[in-house]
Design a protein around this nucleic acid. Structure first.
Lengths: 237, 237
DNA sequence: GAGTGGTCTAGACCACACG
DNA sequence: GTGTGGTCTAGACCACTCT
């Protein structure tokens, strides 16, 4: 069984209603009291569900007025929580797919050793995938994992599979925190070919180090995304 | 009067204890029950306070174990809270300067009207500045503000001045939240000239809408930054 | 087993907007 | 005035870690 908490179910229902267009952008969703009645829970529980949707950038609250669906103009990577590409896009009502370009075991290059805090000569899994949104290539992901963490991952096909789900469900790895560095680069020949853009066109480049609950490095990811997949962040002062 | 909610006070106290080093990075803070007792509130209220600290990237919860202070990122932490360029860079030990290119009053273009939720024909202040780090141009900022918010801002020179500080100190505007969208673009002739880069070279492009405590739009900012000024983010699952 | 955070109940009063 | 979200109480039981 996955998440069994009531608020998760409510969150999922509202999320689905937004994705399906039942709750349209700019529109008000049912009041907290109404939702509480509908699900037979208290308002606190409904609020917990809605708080999650706010973090995900799906809705906003206006005191005395209601809770409104935000206008999502285009798909975006949400940066307020650590989520994978698959979860992220599914939440926003897109259909994410991926194609594995390569999945190999090799000795860790120096910069990867450093990020993953590995010793000289340590082996890693190198997984390269193209990410598609509704058939359009939108990002190239190059993931590096310590080999001992998920030894037989290299023998699997990671086409259309959520890496985070796999790590959690099959290897018992629970991700906890990540640090991410975002910059802009020119598309190389390889990136341009894979993403169907011109060589030299601007790409969003991010480097991310993800850690588990014991603060041990789990993955180092390099990502090249087309400008059509911007990053979205909600900030608080 | 400022925020009077109990959880805000508790949040501030914990935040201060972390800043002062009383709760050191990696250490556990007092349990929710202990804090509830100390402040004479229920655990729910303490949880609300801590939830805010998690959003800000200050602490993390571990079920069955406790709530821990996160390791503070040494080099930079730009995107977990709403801060201005000046504060941000000063904190990191740089010497930020800025030069005003223009500061005018004009009718809001359509896309600005939309972001700032203004009526047709409303006037805005348009402030364009180059940001320098240790003499090197690193970002071009184009800020749009509703004219009525800060009517005489247009008659000031904003060279080497923190806009956020000015808004807060002299116009009594207290910023609260922001939504930011990050993408990559090619440098236009104007941007290239100002930032001393080649036309067509990749830039980090961000659009930000900042709101005050009443959720009213205060500023819409477009920013073009060189890849030498990357963005750092800390995430939690 | 003791202590921690995760979830939830069944209410309450308040601040705010005007659906 | 009515309905909305914002805050809070005083409990409860559960899942998890081992401080």
């Amino acid at each position: 069984m996955a998440k069994s908490a009531l608020y998760h179910r409510i969150q999922g229902d509202i999320s689905a209603s937004i994705a399906s267009g039942e709750y349209a952008p700019g529109e008000r969703i049912p009041s907290e009291s109404a939702l509480a009645d509908r699900y037979g829970v208290t308002r606190m529980t409904v609020r917990q569900a809605i708080s999650g949707l706010i973090t995900k950038g799906l809705v906003t609250r206006k005191q005395g007025s209601g809770t409104y669906v935000l206008r999502t103009r285009q798909p975006a990577r949400a940066l307020n929580q650590l989520t994978g590409f698959t979860e992220d896009m599914t939440e926003q009502g897109y259909r994410p797919t991926s194609r594995q370009l390569s999945n190999t075991e090799e000795e860790a290059p120096e910069h990867v050793q450093e990020w993953l805090e590995l010793n000289n000569g340590a082996h890693v899994i190198r997984l390269e995938r193209v990410r598609f949104l509704d058939e359009t290539p939108t990002a190239l992901h190059l993931v590096w994992l310590p080999l001992w963490l998920a030894p037989d991952l290299v023998r699997r096909s990671m086409d259309n599979v959520s890496l985070y789900q796999t790590l959690e469900d099959e290897f018992g790895i629970r991700l906890s925190t990540a640090s991410q560095r975002i910059s802009a680069v020119r598309a190389s020949a390889h990136e341009a070919e894979v993403l169907k853009v011109e060589v030299g066109s601007p790409l969003l480049y991010t480097e991310k180090i993800t850690r588990d609950e014991n603060n041990q490095p789990v993955e180092f990811v390099q990502s090249w995304a087309t400008p059509e997949l911007p990053i979205w962040v909600e900030l608080q002062r």
